[in-house]
Simulated assay, not measured.
Amino acid sequence: MAVRLGALAERHGLELIGDGNVEIDGVCTLANGRAGAISFLANPQYRRYLASTAASAVIVSTADAEALATPGLVARDPYVAYARVASEFLPPADATGQVHPRAVVDEQASLGAGVTIAAGAVVAADARLADGVCIGPNTVIGRGVQIGSDTVVAANVTLEDGVTIGARCRLHPGVVVGSRGFGLAMDAGRWIEVPQLGSVVIGDDVEIGANTTIDRGAVEDTVIGHGVKIDNLVQIAHNVRIGDHTALAAKVGIAGSSTIGSYCMLGGAVGVAGHLEITDKVMITGMTLVTRSIREPGTYSSGWPVATSGEWRKQVARLRRLGKLEDRVKQLESGA
């Protein structure tokens, strides 16, 4: 449905420039704009498209407002404003408020008002689904699972027994929450399993990307705080604790019993060793390996930046010679 630009400005507290009667029916990029869509300018490298874009409106900062060639909205942070405006054009969840005839719901499960359960889904005994919960096709909700109001669980998700999910969460396809933690003990040359008797507790307003796995705790619960955003293909091991409003990019791996603070950001493919503590407001750049606790807020890196193959080989060769260089320095310092 189309929305007048002036209505968007009023609803989101933005300054309107130009014709407020322009109708907006979706979003677009500046470079590939189209009539009827709204775009935004947050990265200066795209400023060159501002004068020529085919978008019907653009969200800009105060500094870029004079360069607008179209109607627009002025925001303190154009990217944040775009996120809020764009959410108005999301397709609604496939919520019918009904249980599909081909879903299997145990008679001892509790369903709130307006719960939607799609075909092929299974809801086990003692599960409690609050008002407005939406369960996708072929999803499995284990015994005693609790799901807060208005949470959307997509297709092919597995919530193991005893898991707790907060309100207004979104779990994308293939997510597994509460699977057995990787606990093993060596006994006489053979591995024996250590029982994983905890569960997983997930706060409100959490998003979990496709094919992410969160293991249940060994003794205490694995805990994900409120407002945490988790990308696709992330592995969170048993007894991990993640603070409120932390974001994890794709392929992050967090080993068992590590604690991540609030308002942290972990880039793609970051690895965190077990039993570590990372304080609040830490940013860790992509491909970084964390092998010690981080006690001070800030940005941390260990990944090797890309270089040409020839330069990379030279850098590796220099590293391999460092031991010999150190020995020579020690000899010189000792006067040998």
Score class of each variant (00 low, 15 high):
3 V>M: 04
5 L>P: 09
7 A>R: 08
9 A>T: 11
14 L>R: 11
14 L>E: 11
27 V>G: 05
30 L>W: 03
33 G>K: 08
35 A>Q: 15
38 I>T: 02
38 I>A: 06
42 A>G: 11
42 A>M: 01
44 P>K: 08
49 Y>R: 00
49 Y>T: 00
51 A>I: 01
51 A>F: 01
53 T>Q: 03
55 A>W: 04
57 A>K: 02
59 I>T: 05
59 I>S: 01
60 V>K: 03
61 S>G: 14
62 T>E: 08
66 E>S: 13
67 A>H: 03
71 P>H: 01
71 P>E: 03
72 G>I: 00
75 A>Q: 07
76 R>T: 11
76 R>H: 07
77 D>V: 05
82 Y>P: 08
83 A>D: 02
83 A>R: 05
84 R>W: 06
86 A>S: 10
88 E>T: 05
91 P>Y: 07
98 Q>F: 00
99 V>Q: 05
99 V>R: 03
100 H>L: 08
100 H>G: 10
101 P>S: 10
104 V>L: 09
105 V>H: 09
107 E>I: 09
108 Q>P: 02
112 G>F: 12
113 A>F: 12
114 G>V: 14
114 G>S: 10
115 V>C: 07
116 T>Y: 00
122 V>H: 07
129 L>W: 11
129 L>E: 11
129 L>D: 10
130 A>V: 03
131 D>C: 15
131 D>V: 15
136 G>Q: 02
138 N>E: 06
140 V>S: 13
142 G>W: 04
142 G>R: 06
144 G>N: 10
145 V>L: 04
146 Q>F: 09
151 T>K: 01
154 A>S: 14
159 L>Q: 15
160 E>R: 10
161 D>Y: 07
161 D>S: 14
162 G>E: 11
163 V>L: 10
165 I>D: 05
167 A>V: 10
172 H>Q: 06
173 P>A: 13
179 S>Y: 07
180 R>S: 11
182 F>R: 06
183 G>V: 15
185 A>N: 11
188 A>L: 15
194 V>M: 15
195 P>G: 08
196 Q>W: 11
197 L>F: 11
199 S>N: 09
201 V>W: 04
204 D>I: 09
208 I>E: 02
211 N>A: 13
218 A>I: 02
226 H>R: 04
231 D>C: 03
234 V>N: 01
235 Q>E: 13
236 I>E: 01
239 N>Q: 07
242 I>N: 03
244 D>N: 14
244 D>M: 03
248 L>S: 11
249 A>W: 09
249 A>Q: 04
251 K>D: 08
254 I>D: 12
254 I>L: 14
261 G>S: 06
262 S>M: 02
262 S>V: 07
263 Y>G: 06
266 L>S: 08
273 A>H: 15
276 L>P: 08
282 V>S: 12
287 M>T: 13
289 L>F: 06
290 V>G: 05
294 I>A: 03
298 G>Q: 07
299 T>S: 13
301 S>N: 09
302 S>A: 14
305 P>A: 05
307 A>W: 04
311 E>C: 03
312 W>M: 12
313 R>K: 15
315 Q>K: 13
317 A>C: 09
334 S>R: 04
